Measured scan of single mutants.
Amino acid sequence: PREAYIVTIEKGKPGQTVTWYQLRADHPKPDSLISEHPTAQEAMDAKKRYED
């Protein structure tokens, strides 16, 4: 089974940042970016789909 994890990042100019959620996995390479999402819920949904 595949495993993934969610990383929170800040995008934008200082003082005007927006939080994004990255879905990452250690396949095919360590810390590979799988997808980016504007909400934590979307990231969790993507994580479930990826791991299923």
Score class of each variant (00 low, 15 high):
26 D>M: 13
36 E>Q: 05
15 G>Q: 05
51 E>K: 07
51 E>S: 07
19 T>A: 05
50 Y>P: 01
40 A>W: 15
40 A>E: 15
45 D>L: 14
48 K>W: 08
17 T>E: 12
24 R>V: 07
24 R>D: 01
42 E>I: 04
20 W>T: 04
33 L>R: 03
2 R>F: 12
7 V>I: 12
11 K>P: 02
17 T>F: 11
25 A>T: 15
30 P>E: 08
25 A>C: 12
39 T>C: 04
49 R>S: 09
24 R>G: 01
34 I>Q: 04
9 I>N: 03
7 V>H: 05
34 I>M: 04
23 L>V: 13
33 L>G: 01
40 A>L: 15
9 I>A: 05
19 T>G: 03
23 L>M: 03
12 G>I: 05
39 T>R: 04
9 I>K: 06
14 P>Q: 10
4 A>L: 14
42 E>W: 02
38 P>C: 09
5 Y>M: 04
52 D>R: 13
45 D>E: 14
32 S>A: 07
46 A>Y: 04
9 I>G: 02
30 P>T: 08
32 S>Y: 12
48 K>L: 12
48 K>E: 09
26 D>K: 14
31 D>R: 11
6 I>M: 04
6 I>C: 02
23 L>S: 00
31 D>Y: 15
10 E>C: 13
40 A>S: 08
40 A>Y: 15
13 K>A: 13
51 E>N: 11
35 S>W: 01
11 K>Y: 11
34 I>H: 03
29 K>M: 14
14 P>E: 12
10 E>L: 14
38 P>Q: 13
15 G>E: 06
8 T>W: 07
14 P>M: 09
10 E>W: 07
46 A>C: 04
51 E>I: 10
22 Q>T: 04
42 E>D: 11
31 D>W: 15
29 K>C: 13
36 E>N: 04
11 K>D: 03
44 M>F: 13
13 K>M: 14
11 K>I: 09
6 I>P: 00
12 G>H: 06
26 D>E: 06
8 T>G: 05
4 A>K: 01
8 T>N: 06
23 L>D: 01
20 W>M: 06
5 Y>C: 04
26 D>W: 09
37 H>P: 00
39 T>K: 03
30 P>G: 09
5 Y>N: 03
28 P>F: 06
5 Y>T: 04
10 E>N: 10
47 K>M: 10
32 S>M: 10
48 K>I: 12
1 P>W: 14
28 P>L: 12
47 K>V: 03
39 T>P: 00
20 W>G: 02
34 I>G: 00
18 V>R: 11
42 E>Q: 09
36 E>W: 06
19 T>N: 06
13 K>E: 15
18 V>S: 11
9 I>P: 01
31 D>S: 12
26 D>A: 13
16 Q>C: 14
4 A>H: 05
44 M>N: 09
9 I>W: 04
38 P>A: 14
35 S>A: 02
20 W>K: 04
30 P>Y: 10
32 S>L: 08
11 K>S: 05
17 T>L: 13
40 A>H: 15
42 E>V: 03
22 Q>I: 04
21 Y>G: 00
29 K>Y: 15
23 L>N: 01
12 G>R: 05
8 T>P: 14
52 D>F: 13
41 Q>P: 06
28 P>E: 08
39 T>Y: 04
1 P>A: 13
51 E>M: 13
44 M>V: 10
52 D>K: 13
14 P>H: 10
31 D>E: 09
9 I>R: 04
34 I>W: 03
16 Q>I: 07
5 Y>A: 02
41 Q>R: 11
18 V>A: 08
35 S>D: 01
13 K>Q: 14
24 R>N: 02
46 A>E: 04
21 Y>A: 00
5 Y>E: 02
7 V>F: 05
26 D>G: 12
45 D>T: 09
49 R>P: 01
47 K>W: 07
21 Y>V: 01
12 G>W: 05
35 S>P: 00
11 K>C: 10
22 Q>N: 01
16 Q>A: 12
15 G>V: 03
45 D>A: 13
36 E>L: 04
47 K>A: 05
35 S>G: 03
34 I>S: 00
45 D>V: 11
29 K>G: 09
30 P>W: 08
1 P>I: 14
32 S>H: 15
40 A>Q: 15
44 M>S: 08
3 E>I: 15
10 E>G: 05
23 L>K: 01
46 A>I: 01
37 H>K: 01
35 S>N: 02
15 G>S: 06
1 P>T: 13
26 D>V: 09
31 D>C: 15
1 P>Q: 13
33 L>H: 03
45 D>Q: 13
15 G>P: 15
49 R>Q: 10
46 A>G: 03
35 S>K: 01
37 H>S: 02
32 S>P: 02
21 Y>Q: 00
19 T>C: 07
32 S>E: 06
5 Y>H: 06
8 T>L: 12
24 R>T: 03
30 P>M: 09
31 D>P: 08
27 H>A: 07
40 A>K: 15
28 P>R: 08
25 A>L: 06
38 P>M: 12
41 Q>D: 09
34 I>K: 04
38 P>W: 06
47 K>Q: 07
36 E>M: 05
41 Q>V: 09
35 S>V: 01
32 S>W: 11
44 M>R: 10
26 D>R: 14
25 A>E: 03
24 R>A: 02
16 Q>T: 09
14 P>R: 09
46 A>L: 02
1 P>H: 14
46 A>K: 02
27 H>C: 11
19 T>Y: 08
52 D>E: 15
15 G>H: 06
6 I>F: 03
46 A>R: 02
33 L>P: 03
48 K>G: 07
12 G>E: 04
1 P>Y: 14
